[in-house]
Structures are given as structure tokens and as C-alpha cells.
């Protein structure tokens, strides 16, 4: 649509220049990450040297070494368990709530939606202390139950907002037709309406996993050796013996960042709705 408006008289020249510019900016922004990825494949002697090495024979030694440390693999499994566990629970309960908000609009809907959104706008550090004490009191520290419950709450506001947005876009006629034909409410919710909000489900699933996966502070304070995830592993594992172990940072950083790149590529059309808490939808 854009080029129908700004179509230049000589088509090939300026367009190509702009394309080059767009690609150049993309590569420039990716360069720091690319540098870390390339560092992960350097021979150890070429990492901690000055001047930096640009041409080298790639090796997997750093990555295999980083993975051979006792905790490394467990960071990944912990992250997978608590992020998937919490997000699945969150989406399930959020769908029920979003359906209720969208179809029945119980008294106080707007206020509850407001409260849910505002919980995501408070700096995380503000809530660490009460959670820390609550977790100590309930003996939930360093337990999956505690972390999954916490991250479920962490994911619920966003899921409710995103799913309500999608549900509001689906005509109530579907519900009414179902009722007229004698379908139960559960049948309507899960067999008629649910398939139609699939994009909302995908978006809230992918982005909640991403947010939980990336969360550091609460995992650091409420978790422990049995439940530390990747960001904490990257942080604590980076400072072995005083100095920062750059080979470790680069290796684990690479293993962490590559799936992210794939996720953004695969789910690019959900990126907007995902990063605006479901409040903005549109094509990019």
C-alpha cells in the first residue's frame, strides 16, 4: 500500500537504496548478538585476548564445556518446567475469565481489568519483599508449586487482556445460535468459540512463555538451586572465581538466544499484540 502513494518516478534507484538502508539497520542492531554468537564458537585462547580475533576456526568446545558444568542443563530444564507449567494454567483460567468478561460483563469488569493491567506496570522490585516473606511463610521457596503459582499470576493479566480482545471481536451470534440449538455453555465455550480465538491463544502462549523465560528477579529471590532458570544461571554462572567467564556467557547466551530468534521469525505477526499486553492488534 505504501508504494502506491510514495511511488517515485524512477522506480528502481531510490527503492533499492531504501531497501539497503533497512537491511543495514537490521544487521547493525543484530551485530552485538552476532558477536556473542561468534564468540561462542571461538577457540578458548581467542576469546580473552586483545586485539579481538575476527577470523578463527569454529569449535564447539566452549559449548560442550559450558554444558558439562553440573548445573547448566538443569537451568534449562527448570526454565522449561516452570514456564510451561505456569503458562498452561494461566491460559486455561484466563480463558474462562476472559469469556465471562466478554460475554456477561459482570459488575466491576472494567475495574478488574484495570487492576489486572496495573499489576504488570509496577516495578518488579516493589513486590519482591512481600512475595519473599509470603514464600518463606508458606514454605514455598525453591519449589515448583510456588514458582508456577507465581508465574501463573504473572501471566494471567496479559492472557486475560489478550483473550478478551479476541473474544470481543467474535460475534455473540455464535453463542446465541448455539443456545438456540440447545448446546451447553461448555460446548459453546470450548467447541464453538475457542477455535475462533486460536490466534489469541497462540499469542498469549508464545509471549507468556517468553516473559516467564526471561524473568530474572523473582526466580533469583523466590527460587533456589532446585528451581533456578536460565537468566539466573547466566548471571550466577558468569562469575566463576572472581572474573567473568566470557566463554560461559557466550556459550549459554548463544544457546539461550538462538531459539528466541527462531521464535520471532515464526511468530512475527503476533509480536505486536504480544508486546502490548493484547491492547493493540494489527499487521506489521
Amino acid at each position: 500500500m505504501a508504494e502506491t502513494i510514495f511511488k517515485p518516478k524512477r522506480k528502481s534507484g531510490p527503492i533499492k537504496f531504501a531497501t539497503l538502508g533497512a537491511w543495514g539497520i537490521s544487521i547493525l542492531f543484530f551485530l552485538p548478538v552476532a558477536w556473542i554468537i561468534s564468540t561462542a564458537f571461538k577457540p578458548k585462547a581467542s576469546i580473552v585476548v586483545s586485539p579481538p580475533v575476527f577470523i578463527f576456526k569454529p569449535t564447539l568446545n566452549n559449548i560442550t564445556e559450558a554444558l558439562s558444568f553440573d548445573n547448566t542443563l538443569s537451568y534449562f530444564t527448570h526454565s522449561i518446567i516452570y514456564s510451561f507449567g505456569s503458562v498452561i494454567i494461566a491460559i486455561l483460567v484466563a480463558y474462562l475469565a476472559a469469556y465471562s468478561f466478554s460475554r456477561y460483563k459482570p459488575a466491576g469488569t472494567d475495574f478488574l481489568m484495570f487492576l489486572l493491567l496495573s499489576t504488570r506496570f509496577v516495578p518488579a522490585a516493589a513486590f519482591v519483599v512481600p512475595y519473599f516473606q509470603l514464600f518463606n511463610l508458606l514454605k514455598l521457596k525453591d519449589s515448583y508449586i510456588g514458582l508456577i503459582a507465581f508465574y501463573a499470576m504473572f501471566s494471567i493479566p496479559f492472557s486475560v487482556w489478550i483473550l478478551k480482545g479476541f473474544l470481543d471481536g467474535i460475534s455473540q451470534r455464535f453463542d446465541e445460535t448455539g443456545l438456540v440449538y440447545g448446546a451447553s455453555r461448555w460446548h459453546i465455550m470450548f467447541k464453538v468459540i475457542l477455535p475462533q480465538v486460536k490466534p489469541g491463544l497462540v499469542a498469549s502462549f508464545v509471549f507468556n512463555i517468553l516473559f516467564v523465560w526471561n524473568e530474572f528477579l523473582f526466580n533469583f529471590q523466590l527460587g533456589g538451586a532446585k528451581t533456578f532458570g536460565i537468566p539466573v544461571g547466566l548471571f550466577t554462572g558468569s562469575t566463576k572465581g572472581g572474573a567473568i567467564d566470557w566463554a560461559y556467557v557466550a556459550s549459554i547466551g548463544t544457546l539461550y538466544v538462538l531459539p528466541l530468534v527462531v521464535v520471532i521469525y515464526a511468530f512475527q505477526k503476533y509480536l505486536l499484540v504480544g508486546l502490548t499486553f493484547g491492547t493493540v492488534r494489527g499487521e506489521v
Binding site: 543484530f30 548478538v33 530474572f216 537468566p231 539461550y256 521464535v263 509480536l271
Partner: peptide, 12 residues
């Protein structure tokens, strides 16, 4: 490539 920086955890 351009969007990658915003989804990397601040720790990394």
C-alpha cells in the same frame, strides 16, 4: 534480526 534486541532478557 532487528527485533531480536527487545526479546533478549536484560541479564543477557
Amino acid at each position: 534480526l532487528f527485533f531480536t534486541p527487545m526479546v533478549v532478557t536484560p541479564i543477557a
